[in-house]
Simulated scan of single mutants.
Amino acid sequence: MTYCVALKLNAGMVFASDSRTNAGIDQISSFKKMRTFVNAGDRAIVILSSGNLSITQNAVNRLEHYGRNPAVRNVWNAESLFDVAQLLGECLREVREHDGQFLQQSNVDCNANFIVGGQIQNERQRLFLVYSEGNFIEASDETPYFQTGETKYGKPIIDRVIKPDTALIDAVKCILVSFDSTMRSNLSVGLPIDLACYKHSSFCLDLQQHITQDDPYFSQISRRWSEGLRGVFASLPNPDWLTEIHDSDPIPPS
């Protein structure tokens, strides 16, 4: 399992992915799940992947392979992010068609998903979620983010904090809290975290950070978020319809 998340904001975009893969309790390892395609001044594209590792790696490798042929439409000459999402979906279908039947013979799950986002010259910044079947949807102002993988634990903080006008620095903090919450509840998601920030119309990646176990800022965020939650919980008023219940009340026999 993995966890990937990307935000599309007025100020820019933030992408993050963990690095843990899990093929059993004794087969845990780390693989990078973020791939970037940057031609400064023309385009900045980030792809996050989740699902079957061989399927996702081969699909992105095909995308890179086609990118070396300028005679065909590819990630480097596509005129829109829509075209890039379509190309990635086609690469995913090719890999699943080629490898899927063999994987299914061994009951191997060949599902895979991608988040692809960024900006190409003469176009607004865009964000897409590509499904295993190769089709995709685009993020909107009402839902300016996508998640893949183990999404449920990190979603509540994003829903409460992220809006289109959220500042990039606040978005980064929100994503890190989202990852911390996910890792506390699911051991299949873990450090390192790859994080990338893109400022609107910069056509380059303004920040790329590899967050490891000994990263002091992430440790501080994790600790202070836990302390803050406990403090807020302790300050919540008691329900007026439970005023007769006290810690000193005897516990009834089971």
Rank of each mutant, 00 (worst) to 15 (best):
P70E: 09
A71K: 08
V72K: 15
V72G: 07
R73L: 13
R73I: 10
R73H: 11
N74S: 13
N74G: 07
V75L: 06
V75T: 07
V75P: 04
W76K: 11
W76I: 04
N77P: 03
N77L: 05
A78L: 05
A78H: 05
E79A: 12
E79S: 12
S80M: 01
F82Q: 13
D83T: 13
A85W: 01
Q86W: 14
L87Q: 02
L88G: 02
L88S: 02
G89S: 11
G89R: 02
G89I: 08
C91Q: 12
L92A: 07
L92P: 02
V95T: 06
V95L: 06
R96S: 07
E97W: 12
G100D: 02
G100T: 09
F102V: 08
L103T: 03
Q104V: 14
Q104C: 14
Q105N: 09
S106V: 11
S106L: 13
S106R: 13
V108W: 02
V108T: 14
D109H: 10
D109G: 10
A112T: 01
A112Q: 06
A112V: 06
A112I: 04
F114R: 01
F114M: 05
I115G: 01
I115Y: 03
I115M: 06
V116R: 02
V116E: 00
V116L: 10
V116N: 00
G117E: 00
G117R: 00
Q119H: 08
I120Q: 07
I120L: 07
N122S: 15
E123S: 13
R124M: 10
R124C: 11
Q125F: 09
R126T: 09
R126F: 09
L127Q: 05
L127A: 06
L127V: 05
F128N: 05
F128A: 01
L129W: 11
L129T: 02
V130L: 01
Y131F: 10
Y131Q: 08
Y131V: 09
S132P: 04
S132W: 07
E133M: 15
E133D: 15
F136W: 14
I137V: 10
S140M: 09
S140A: 15
S140G: 11
S140Y: 07
D141W: 03
E142A: 14
P144I: 08
F146P: 00
F146I: 08
Q147G: 04
E150N: 15
E150F: 12
T151C: 12
K152D: 11
Y153M: 00
G154K: 04
